[in-house]
Design a protein around this nucleic acid. Structure first.
Lengths: 120, 120
DNA sequence: TCGTAACGACTACAAACGTAGTCAATTGGG
DNA sequence: CCCAATTGACTACGTTTGTAGTCGTTACGA
């Protein structure tokens, strides 16, 4: 299940707001990305073909919702990314994130809690 | 500076082994990826065009070396990835990594050390 | 009631990507 | 000394991706 960056923008709107139509998707990404409604429909169509979205008729239009869970997709993508960029090692990735944008105090707290869990 | 996944394989070999020619690159990724030497040369050519590699004549051939630092590229890619997939939050990413492949004990130790640093 | 706007289905099209092939020059090994 | 193998330069080509356009239909607002 290959999702391109542009398609991911659509998925993100639908994960946040499942069961909406193409024009609502357009509203959902307003200001973020300004795509022509046809562009959005093309991307949505491709996602449906790929099986990443399910459709549900609503009058003469369709409503869409993700067929895959956001968390599942994130997990797979994260693994792929770490494998490709860091040879599978997570620590260097976190180090870079810490360096480049500064993890927020909240992030750091989250990570600490996470490590506590992992050590058990 | 946009580097595709296939090109990244080349870059990885050159980051590990700067100043080699196309056939050495082929050797460098043997077994990992089995590309035709022409494919490798095409990818290398594209990287040179993009300014990601510098060339140095060596007899009737060229030696190549990265024009950008691995760490710099990793950092930029990591930031982009986290922004696109996780809305910029690093903690969920690490949580997924922990869940999906199990961080090694070594990873966990590294992360702990890192957090110690960050809290200062 | 009538036309304009929105919808789905289909088509378009250039750039990027992955994966090589051709050609002409050159050089190292037998 | 000569030929097969290697090299750089250029070309090829199908697929994917980003970004829309066209067409025929339909439904709502004036």
């Amino acid at each position: 299940m290959q999702i391109t960056p542009a398609e991911l923008e659509i998925m993100n709107v639908l994960w946040d707001n499942p069961g909406i139509g193409a024009s609502e998707i357009a509203d959902g990404l307003k200001d973020d990305k300004s795509w022509n409604i046809r562009t959005i429909k093309t991307l949505v169509g491709r996602l449906v073909e790929k099986g990443a979205l399910t459709t549900e008729p609503d009058g003469r239009r369709y409503l869409y919702r993700p067929a895959i869970k956001r968390g599942d997709y994130q997990k797979k993508a994260a693994k792929q990314f770490v494998d490709r960029m860091f040879g599978g090692r997570a620590a260097p990735l976190v180090a870079h994130l810490a360096d480049s944008r500064g993890l927020t105090p909240e992030d750091i707290a989250d990570l600490e809690a996470l490590l506590g869990e992992l050590k058990k």
